[in-house]
């Protein structure tokens, strides 16, 4: 297990390094990095300061290491718009986006797994077929438009939920989150549902395929031969087996959820990292864009790492055999 963790961490570092190299090359490919990373109305003194900070007088490979070491210290320059260090601006939005992504992942499992299991247990029933047809159509709903329709239905027509924004933040044991207030959750519900629906179709397919594979296994027959009730067969024997692929896929998709928060946050005017990125692109606030990219990629990498370890924890065959499976 220990060797496995070491190897996975090394892989993660490689990915981070590669992305950093790409971002670095992109900044230098677009044009003069000093102009790119300094405000448009910068004075000569400011431009010189930026050039010094970036090590413009050194060879390119040294500049890359300066970029890396600045990045490692969280220094991506100051936001033109907010006048604060770019990373701070990005990180201040992180809790909002994480809340959204986690809530969405939760909803995707709660909605997708039962539907997928049903479709897998009764593949030829009308219900099973409609679920599968629905999941194809679900793949086809563009997230931004679906969000608008959710607003139209639940906020404009029915007036059940707020149309956008982030709700009040509550505090429990020093932990601040909008999960802790009713207002916070009511603001989270629509955007999280929007992001969840984006993944529900996928979860349905994974859960269905895993269900179909599992119910054909000898151990399910043996479990039935023991005289177990269907609730236990489905709720324990089946569910525990299909959760492994579901959690794996969902974990791998958590990164894409955070990225697609760009769309949902813009639709729901939700002040997270994604909306920040879109605003920053509109305002050419490049240090924030770079900080967002590096922070997001770091998050992807960490999430993938956690998923692999969680996968190992869920599947005793991997957990106890050193993860060579």
């Amino acid at each position: 297990m220990f060797a496995y963790i070491i190897r996975r961490v090394a892989q993660s570092v490689f990915v981070l390094f590669s992305i950093a190299l790409l971002v670095f090359l992109a900044i230098y490919a677009i044009g003069d990095p000093v102009i790119t990373l300094a405000p448009q109305d910068a004075t000569t003194a400011e431009l010189e300061a930026t050039a010094r900070r970036l090590g413009m007088d050194r060879p390119l490979y040294q500049q890359f290491f300066i970029f890396l070491s600045n990045a490692a210290q969280g220094d991506f320059g100051r936001s033109f718009v907010y006048g604060e260090p770019a990373l701070n601006v990005v990180l201040s939005r992180l809790p909002a986006t994480l809340e959204l992504a986690l809530f969405a992942a939760f909803l995707a499992v709660v909605i997708g797994v039962p539907l997928g299991m049903y479709a897998g247990l009764k593949p030829d029933s009308a219900g099973g077929k409609s679920i599968m047809l629905g999941s194809i159509l679900g793949f086809s709903l563009p997230s931004f438009w679906q969000g608008l329709m959710l607003i139209l239905l639940f906020a404009v027509v029915l007036r059940w939920l707020p149309a956008g924004g982030r709700g009040d933040v509550g505090s429990i044991w020093g932990l601040q989150s909008s999960f802790f207030t009713f207002d916070g959750i009511s603001h989270l519900l629509l955007p999280a549902l929007n992001m969840a629906l984006f993944k529900v179709a996928l979860i349905i397919r994974v859960a269905r395929a895993a269900t179909r594979e599992t119910i054909g296994q000898d151990f399910m027959l043996f479990a039935r031969a023991k005289g177990l009730p269907p609730t236990r067969l489905v709720g324990v024997h089946l569910l525990k087996n299909i959760l492994i692929p579901v959690v794996t896929v969902l974990g791998l998709e958590l990164g894409s959820l955070i990225a697609f928060a760009i769309v949902t946050e813009s639709v729901f005017a939700y002040p997270g990292m994604g909306k920040l990125l879109v605003d920053s692109i509109g305002q050419l606030d490049r240090p924030v864009i770079v900080a967002y990219l590096m922070a997001t990629v770091l998050m992807f990498v960490v999430i993938n790492l956690i998923v692999d370890l969680l996968y190992a924890a869920l599947d005793p065959r991997i957990r106890l055999s050193g993860g060579e499976a």
């Binding site: 990915v15 992305i19 992109a26 677009i30 990164g255 894409s256 990225a259 697609f260 760009i262 769309v263 990125l277 879109v278 692109i281 864009i289 990219l293 997001t296 990629v297 992807f300 993938n304």
Partner: peptide, 15 residues
Amino acid sequence: LSVPSILVALVLLAA
């Protein structure tokens, strides 16, 4: 493939 398409496309178009 490990980086979501929307993110790549958005950043490319920003450039």
